[in-house]
């Protein structure tokens, strides 16, 4: 464990790590550092930009990116909304302080409220947004998705001004079950942790020295106050991580999973989530009309001679 992480009390482990998910963190750090450097080099970039929420995923990616290219080449963009947890912002600021990387703050409240409007509070009357009065009735899901896509737009704008590629921060668990906003938080130039389950993210976060309170707190999309991933989805990360590992990585059938001790109803529900979100993990299909079609029979590496920025 790195310095800066308080000793773990025996009765309260920092995180729960299913045995089969334990990875060699030294190798993971090495591969990820090479991956980040390789992606930037091939694209002709030396800098990186990421959205730092103060949660474990983006904090880990900030640490890994700073380790790979140096903190001076990393810009962390903090993008709180008016209902975002102040504790998250404090955690994000602590990561920036510890890493010594660059950071900037963009409050997305006027952007999001400018679209949906803002309901009346106390003496303050309601403000009508671009959607008109109906915008005030928008569901939390719509507001959450819009906020995620607003952050994406802010990040890609900073990609230009800072001259850095946008680094993705989504993990394997949320990607597989579709707990992401398409073209929102899943938008990036490359993703260093998208093949790590949440439990493995925690293991790696501890190894690289992400502050303990960030590892310990309940993961949340923070789309509305008090929201937690596990509360919303109804399962704990160690359990769903194990289930996904055996289902996806180890190709176990539904009956085999049940025989291993997973609840059938949970297996079926997770199978549905994975299948229903397939579209979020793939490039949109193009209707095949011409002799050679991108993604079908025109197949090149994303980065090849001539594709690096001059």
């Amino acid at each position: 464990m790195s310095e800066g992480v308080a000793p773990v009390r025996a009765e309260e482990p920092l995180f729960e790590l299913p045995e089969e998910l334990a990875i060699d963190t030294d190798i993971a750090r090495r591969v990820i550092a090479e991956f980040i450097r390789g992606q930037l080099r091939q694209a002709g970039f030396e800098r990186a930009v990421l959205g730092l929420s103060g949660g474990i995923d983006s904090s880990l990616v900030a640490y890994l990116t700073a380790e790979a290219i140096g903190p001076e080449r990393l810009l962390c963009v903090l993008m709180p909304y008016r209902t975002s947890s102040p504790a998250s912002r404090a955690d994000a600021e602590e990561v920036v302080r510890r890493l010594g990387c660059r950071s900037t703050l963009v409050d997305i409240t006027p952007m999001v409220d400018g679209y949906f409007g803002r309901p009346a509070e106390g003496d303050r009357p309601a403000v009508i947004g671009a959607l008109g009065p109906a915008g005030l009735e928008a569901s939390p899901l719509r507001r959450g998705n819009y906020a995620a896509r607003t952050r994406m737009a802010v990040l890609y704008d900073h990609s230009v001004t800072f001259g850095g590629l946008v680094v993705g921060t989504g993990n394997k668990t949320e990607t597989l079950i579709g707990y992401t906003t398409i073209f929102g938080d899943n938008a990036c130039a490359f993703n260093p942790i998208g093949d790590l389950y949440k439990s493995q993210v925690r293991q790696l976060a501890a190894a690289v020295g992400v502050p303990e309170q960030i590892i310990r707190k309940a993961p949340s999309a923070d789309l509305w106050p008090g929201q937690t991933d596990e509360g919303e989805a109804g399962f704990s990360y160690p359990v769903i991580d194990r289930l996904l590992y055996w289902m996806i990585d180890r190709r176990r059938s539904r009956d085999e999973l049940v025989a291993m001790g997973f609840e059938r109803s949970m297996v079926e529900r997770v199978e549905r989530m994975v299948a229903a979100s397939e579209f979020k993990r793939q490039v949109p299909p193009i209707a095949k009309l011409g002799p050679r079609t991108a993604g079908v029979d025109y197949l090149y590496p994303r980065r090849r001679p001539g594709s690096a920025r001059m």
Binding site: E19, E20, A22, I23, D24, D26, I27, A28, V31
Partner: peptide, 13 residues
């Protein structure tokens, strides 16, 4: 290509 970083492997890969 290196893959499967399970800590249980003899050499971590």
């Amino acid at each position: 290509p290196g893959r499967d970083l399970a800590a249980s492997h003899e050499v971590g890969l």
